[in-house]
Amino acid sequence: MAELQVRHLLAPVIELALQAGLLIEAELSRPDGPRGSGDKAEIDVEIEKLLREGLQQILACDFVGEETGVDLSGHRFAWVVDPNDGTADFLKRRPGSAVSIGLLRDGTPVLGVVYAPVNAHGPDCIAWAEGLQTLLRNGQPVSRDLCSATLSSDSVVFVSYSAYLKPEQNAVLCRPAIFHPMPSIAYRLARVAAGDGIAAVSLYSVSTHDVVAAHALLRAVNGDIWNERGELLRYASPNAFSCSVRFCFGGAQAACAELYSRPWNSLLDTGSASEVSGDEPDNMILSELMALAIDVLGDQNIAKAWFHTPALGLSGFSPIDLLSTAQGSVQVRDLLQRMRYGVYQ
């Protein structure tokens, strides 16, 4: 298939991603919350079946899916799909999970669509295919070039949601940039490509379905992805990297080189970065609500100040004063959700 035809595949792939996003929205709106537990959601399988059928109609070729399996025949093209990257956070009703659809041609990412239908800034679809001069973000062209980009006090490094549990360590590891936690490595990488950050980091072992789509987006802006040893991520097959990957760093080359040289293992020395010791339930609640407040208010410092400010919606109490009880924590969470949708008065 010629390069020009690859570009022509993008519009129907975007449309398919938007359809999948409607299923994610509907699942989050269920009165009892999304179905599933741990890192397995029932909607993920339903979405991937939709995507598999639709993508094969767009281009019949090999397929790598997180949920419905791998079909490899040696075809030079392969769809690589994560139906809902960030499932564990999605099941906790945290916004920011993403549909990730990538296309490999002879092991090279030539098309990518990453769509986060529910997040603090509204639905966000970032897409590109070989042959386009720029990325498309929600249908609008975005010019971006990571060639000379470096870490600075004005830049942002996207890290996993659990970074809220160890803010001081993450701040040191990302400095002089600001760190911003969020679900979905696919969406973190996509936001870097679109211009929201300088680099994205994952301290969890990634698979090809996590990164192929975003890798295509980074290719479009002269970015790339490296492992913890500074080796470029490349594909031995549509479902296997050519090198082992423990941590991954995606974005501008200079920024990622500086980041992967830092001691990220220090975050994992006392266990998983997503774990909190059982004798600190209040800290766990505070971390989760702080994450929600940052998503709603859009700034980490503003969110911290908000927790210590008397709120009319809490009968004049400061949010921090109510977190010592389960009922108070529910009140704070409900207020933040009402603020998100503009119904807090």
Rank of each mutant, 00 (worst) to 15 (best):
F249I: 13
F249Y: 12
G251D: 01
G251H: 04
G251P: 10
G251K: 00
Q253E: 13
Q253K: 15
A254L: 10
A255I: 12
C256P: 11
C256R: 01
E258Y: 02
E258I: 13
S261P: 11
R262W: 12
R262C: 15
W264H: 10
N265K: 12
N265L: 14
N265A: 15
S266G: 06
T270C: 14
T270R: 07
T270L: 13
S272Q: 02
A273Y: 00
A273K: 09
A273V: 14
S274L: 03
S274M: 09
V276K: 03
V276P: 07
G278V: 13
G278I: 13
D279F: 07
P281E: 02
D282V: 15
N283Q: 00
M284W: 02
M284Y: 08
I285N: 05
I285M: 11
L286F: 15
S287T: 10
E288V: 14
E288D: 13
E288S: 15
L289W: 05
M290C: 11
M290H: 08
M290P: 08
A291P: 07
A291Y: 06
D295C: 04
D295Y: 01
V296G: 09
V296M: 05
V296W: 02
L297F: 09
G298R: 03
D299C: 01
Q300N: 04
A303C: 08
A303Q: 06
A303E: 00
A303P: 13
W306R: 00
W306L: 03
W306I: 08
F307K: 00
H308N: 12
T309R: 04
P310W: 01
